[in-house]
């Protein structure tokens, strides 16, 4: 498979189909890092396998006009589709080399985000590569690990999240790595009004994490990058998953899976009053 990845990247670059190719490289110490290559000769250094957890859509400059080739796993591919739906990624500017993802492991066990993965193949691609024996699949909702939090009483939940958010140092790594955070200027930087208070305080941290999660409602593709980036291990995925589940149950929408979908908050049905009282849909 790796040969096909290298060949394709080489071909695209050599033929001028793309100006730049985004993929992965394994460093001598064994760690895996994303790379941007512009020269067909560099294609030999590309790698795919365990450690390729990064969502390369998060590294694409959406404002540039360069032609981009990009290697996308299932989750990354959903980010691409979601960005396209939102008018941020112009399909014509991208050449997508899809990978049927075998699931990534670290230290012998499957990555957490791969355990809960539901789509191992990008919904759109120009070419697709896969390892023998690895097939494309889709799954319905999987256990999202929220039951524990949801079983807590409200004050206990609040205390739980207070404890988590207290650690936030407001480095915004989660935002910066998120492939779907692309505002010109983040709401945290808005001063009139100062919705999100500045400074590292529990209340403003809380606010920040809520608004971050809400902004991703119906958009998050579960690539797990925010979780991975957080230096203080705040379980950001819980908030995202909670809203993802809600969006799917209430609006039958799974972000980044249907290139013809309208973003879930830009659409409505006239007869969906039941969303106000989920549970009793009678």
């Amino acid at each position: 498979m790796i040969d096909r990845i290298r060949d394709t990247a080489r071909r695209w670059l050599a033929d001028g189909i793309v100006d730049v190719f985004l993929g992965f490289r394994k460093r001598p110490d064994g760690t895996v890092v994303p790379v941007r290559i512009r020269d067909a000769g560099e294609a030999d250094g590309l790698f795919f396998g365990d450690g390729c957890v990064h969502n390369l859509m998060g590294l694409v400059d959406l404002r540039s006009e360069e032609k981009v080739g990009v290697l996308l796993k299932g989750c990354d591919g959903r980010a691409f589709v979601q960005l396209a739906i939102e008018g941020e990624a112009d399909r014509g500017r991208f050449k997508v080399l899809g990978v049927v993802c075998p699931g990534l492991s670290s230290n012998g066990s499957l990555e957490e985000k791969c355990e809960t993965c539901r789509y191992n193949t990008p919904p759109v691609y120009d070419e697709l590569v896969k390892e023998d024996g690895v097939e494309s699949w889709e799954k319905g909702p999987v256990a999202d690990g929220l039951a524990e939090v949801e079983s807590m009483s409200h004050p206990v939940r609040a205390a739980y999240f207070k404890n988590e958010f207290d650690r936030c140092i407001r480095c915004y790594a989660c935002r910066d790595i998120c492939p779907l955070c692309y505002c010109e200027e983040c709401v945290t930087e808005k001063s009139r009004p100062q919705w999100v208070e500045v400074g590292v305080k529990t209340s403003s941290n809380f606010y920040w994490h809520l608004i971050r999660a809400y902004h991703l409602a119906g958009r998050c593709v579960a690539c797990g990058e925010c979780d991975r980036a957080c230096p203080v291990d705040i379980p950001l995925k819980y908030l995202n998953r909670k809203l993802s589940r809600e969006v799917e149950e209430l609006f039958d929408y799974v972000p980044g899976t249907d290139p013809d979908a309208t973003p879930v908050l830009l659409e409505f049905k006239e007869d969906e009053e039941h969303v106000l009282c989920p549970g009793d849909e009678s």
């Binding site: 008018g87 010109e184 309208t262 830009l266």
Partner: peptide, 27 residues
């Protein structure tokens, strides 16, 4: 226009078709 990313989400929800595309600093 400094903050606008041109996603045109606003256009989608405007019932009165009051929002149109424009260009600002080549965006």
């Amino acid at each position: 226009p400094f903050r606008c990313t041109g996603c045109m989400d606003c256009m989608e929800v405007c019932f009165y078709t009051a929002i149109e595309e424009d260009e600002f600093m080549r965006r």
